[in-house]
Design a protein around this nucleic acid. Structure first.
Lengths: 220, 220
DNA sequence: GAAATAGTGTCTCTAAGACAGTATATA
DNA sequence: TATATACTGTCTTAGAGACACTATTTC
């Protein structure tokens, strides 16, 4: 399950299935573990096969194992789901076995008029919740930002993943005062309008202590 | 991986292996998934086979999948580890295939002079960290307490799992003011010494918001 | 009475929420 | 100039840490 943020939206990579079952339906990309390969290695390999990306530069973590005996009509398949987070990723490369891969907003992939293959809707729901929770306790949000990035870029990541707006002032205070979250580059970025923003690289810290809790789910 | 708290110590159920490989060494209990069974069901079944306990009354959660191709010398075995938490559990029933099952303090099972079979030391480390983290964000600590229990009982659970002491006064304020953590029974417990303590049942809440963070790892 | 544990109250400090105000760019 | 975004500062409040103090039991 590969998440990115594009156009201020959390999006997920979906493929159109080219085989039965669920022919023509959307699904999360995936594949089978090979002999002599760990699950992490298999996830990295599938990731690079689907997107052409070097997964070692992305955030990748194991999510959960799904094991309902009837979840795959072909037979007994246990899936160990992985979650990958990356900055505004390119469209998937052609020529893979993933026919018609595309980015889809997570909100629309989870909406009632979309039905994913297998139990992938439930997996996607779990992945979304994991991503939202990770933003509270870790600095992975920076993994969504192409470097270098501004505090505003980072805030828009949080807003896209959590689905509500944050106070820019308080958000800035939190992330700039968290040791090791942001490393200033000394540069600034000029955009069409407004004051130029300071640019940062990802810092070395991986945990947010104290956490940045999503307590204010009110504003649009 | 079955955790309990006995004698103010976090303990884990270990078995003595009766077969090669790792014959005679200690290991976490486990087994193979059967056809037509989910992983959750398999975990519950193994739990009841090993301890005679009805797992539905315990807290049970999936931890992580372990997949190093060389982790089992007999061949390719992927393990999905589960974590079960329960109140001061009875000693495991005899007559199962678990030869010589016993409770062992987690600290000693993780000490340098103990070596568990397979990669079970790493699994145990992950399980301990998960349990410690769960105590911060959820009310599962109550799953370790035989009902009814006192605020002091609950505090000693935290102290056993986290490995350091908490301020009794601040701990009481936190758990009693968290809606749905404790449900007063109106009864009191008289012990050999000291003022009798009010007794509680587990409440309906499962999340601790805000969390009870282990920030003060200082006192003995 | 002492000793031990249960429980209350209070002071302080950190950090988050709300929000006013200033700074610096483009059109 | 207006507008938009970046950034600073300040007031208030929630909640945690430290810790003094009171309450109720057994010996």
């Amino acid at each position: 399950m590969i998440f990115t943020v594009r156009q201020d939206q959390l999006q997920v990579l979906l493929i159109e299935r080219g085989n039965t079952p669920y022919l023509g339906q959307s699904a999360l990309p995936g594949g089978f573990v090979r002999d002599g390969e760990t699950l992490d290695e298999a996830a990295l390999r599938e990731l690079s096969e689907e997107t052409g990306l070097d997964g070692r530069t992305l955030h990748l973590e194991q999510l959960h194992a799904y094991s309902d005996p009837d979840r795959d009509p072909r037979g007994r398949v246990i899936t160990v789901a992985y979650l990958a987070l990356g900055p505004d990723l390119p469209l998937p490369v052609a020529g893979t076995d993933a026919t018609a891969a595309r980015w889809e907003p997570v909100s629309s992939a989870l909406s009632d008029d979309t039905s994913l293959a297998f139990d992938h809707t439930a997996i996607l729901r779990d992945g979304l919740e994991r991503a939202r929770s990770q933003l509270e306790h870790t600095t992975v949000a920076a993994a969504f930002c192409p470097e270098p990035f501004t505090v505003g870029d980072l805030r828009r990541i949080y807003e896209a993943v959590w689905g509500f707006n944050l106070d820019p002032s308080n958000f800035r205070r939190k992330v700039t005062r968290t040791e090791g979250f942001l490393e200033p580059t000394g540069e600034r970025r000029f955009s069409e309008t407004g004051r130029p923003a300071a640019l940062y690289h990802r810092g070395v810290a991986s945990l947010l202590i104290p956490p940045l809790l999503r307590s204010g789910e009110v504003s649009s």
